[in-house]
Simulated scan of single mutants.
Amino acid sequence: MKPKSVIITIIFTTITIFAFSEKLNIILGEYYPDVYDELRSERPYKKSFSHEESVNYPPSKDGGL
């Protein structure tokens, strides 16, 4: 293999593994990208969540926080 092909293969493999692991974490419910920041931010249409509410998001199945 040419050195250029090896580098491209390594880059592609790294990106693929990273993308798959991000999706796997989301599927398993272990990672919510930027959700913490969004919950903590006050918006015109919602109050900001407390730290406790944010780390326990999503709400429980009974609908409460």
Rank of each mutant, 00 (worst) to 15 (best):
I27G: 13
E53K: 05
I27H: 15
Y57G: 03
V6A: 14
L24I: 07
K47Y: 04
S54V: 08
Y31H: 12
N25D: 11
K46M: 10
I8V: 07
H51V: 15
D37K: 12
A19Q: 00
E38M: 07
L28C: 05
R43N: 09
I8S: 14
I10Q: 12
F12H: 03
S60F: 15
I27D: 13
Y36C: 03
Y32T: 01
I7L: 11
H51D: 05
E52G: 00
S48D: 09
K2G: 12
Y31W: 13
K61N: 06
R43W: 14
S54K: 09
E38K: 11
I17W: 01
S50Y: 03
S60W: 05
S50T: 15
E38D: 12
Y32E: 10
R43L: 06
S21H: 11
E52P: 00
T9Y: 04
G63Y: 04
L24D: 09
K61W: 06
E42L: 03
L28P: 01
Y31A: 11
I17G: 01
P59Y: 15
E52Q: 13
N25P: 00
F20L: 12
F18L: 15
V35E: 05
K2Q: 14
K47M: 13
Y31Q: 10
S41I: 13
N56A: 08
R43C: 10
G64H: 10
R40L: 07
V55Y: 03
E38Y: 09
H51S: 05
I11N: 11
N25Y: 14
Y31F: 09
E42K: 07
D37T: 13
I15S: 13
T13H: 07
V35S: 02
Y32P: 00
A19F: 01
K23I: 14
F18D: 04
V35Y: 02
Y36L: 07
L24P: 03
L28K: 09
D34P: 00
D62P: 10
K47G: 15
S5M: 10
P44R: 01
R40T: 13
F49H: 15
E38H: 14
I15K: 08
M1Y: 06
F49I: 00
Y45L: 04
I8D: 12
G29I: 01
E30C: 08
D34V: 13
I27F: 11
